[in-house]
């Protein structure tokens, strides 16, 4: 079991690395003639990297929680929170300290709801699971409103739908982990991680459009 856990983590890291390299290739359109990346592509890469990392770490945490491997869960949860802090700093670097301070508890909130869902699944507590899903759906509207406030070109409902897909893809990971269907779990992790590009890319583009001077080519 322990061996499988390490193997899963290794595969996740390898996948993250390959996705990151893939993103860099994808960002080739932003290359300058001297081979350096533009600030805009740096931003897109950073957001893609952080959001995918969020999925991998969340999946590692839920897997450990369902397997009742407490030390492993604590480690994954700690890294997941460090990722949240990094995301909030990325938000702060664009929108300022107030936005950074507001973003972090909002982002942590959905992680808390996922913990609730995972605990509900582990205990086979349907009511707890349903409450957590309802909280997560409600949360998608909050997150949509936050992004809309920061970048008005992003309609609240569009962002909410994107985050809802994030919630559903990660829920599918937890369900597969709980069913010990490892092939499906890994496949769902790939789907969930891949979907984060749907959030990161348009968000990065909107930020660049909103602050053209800040992201002018080097």
């Amino acid at each position: 079991m322990r061996h499988k856990s390490f193997l899963t983590l290794f595969l996740m890291l390898a996948l993250a690395l390959s996705l990151s390299i893939g993103s860099k290739s994808f960002a080739g359109g932003d290359h300058m003639t001297d081979g350096s990346f533009s600030k805009a592509s740096d931003l897109r890469l950073a957001l893609n990297s952080l959001l995918r990392e969020h999925v991998f770490l969340a999946a590692a945490a839920t897997d450990a929680a369902l397997g009742e491997r407490n030390a492993e869960f604590q480690a994954a949860a700690g890294s997941l929170d460090a990722n949240s802090v990094d995301l909030s700093k990325a938000v702060g670097s664009v929108y300022g300290l107030d936005a950074e301070k507001a973003f972090l508890p909002l982002w942590r909130k959905h992680i808390g709801f996922f913990v609730d869902y995972t605990v509900g699944v582990a205990a086979n507590d349907k009511a707890k699971q349903e409450k957590a899903v309802a909280d997560l759906v409600q949360y998608t509207k909050d997150f949509g409103a936050f992004i809309h406030s920061a970048s008005p070109s992003h309609p609240t409902n569009v962002v909410a739908e994107l985050v809802k897909t994030h919630v559903l893809t990660l829920k599918a990971v937890v369900d597969a982990q709980a069913a010990k269907n490892w092939a499906k779990a890994d496949s769902e992790i790939r789907t969930a991680a891949g979907h984060m590009q749907m959030i990161a890319d348009p968000l990065a583009q909107a930020i660049v459009n909103q602050f053209p001077n800040k992201f002018a080519q080097r």
Binding site: Y95, D98, A99, K101, A102, F146, S149, A150
Partner: peptide
Amino acid sequence: ETENIDIKLFSFK
């Protein structure tokens, strides 16, 4: 007599 507080980006400002 009047103080205005804006609620923006999930903060009181």
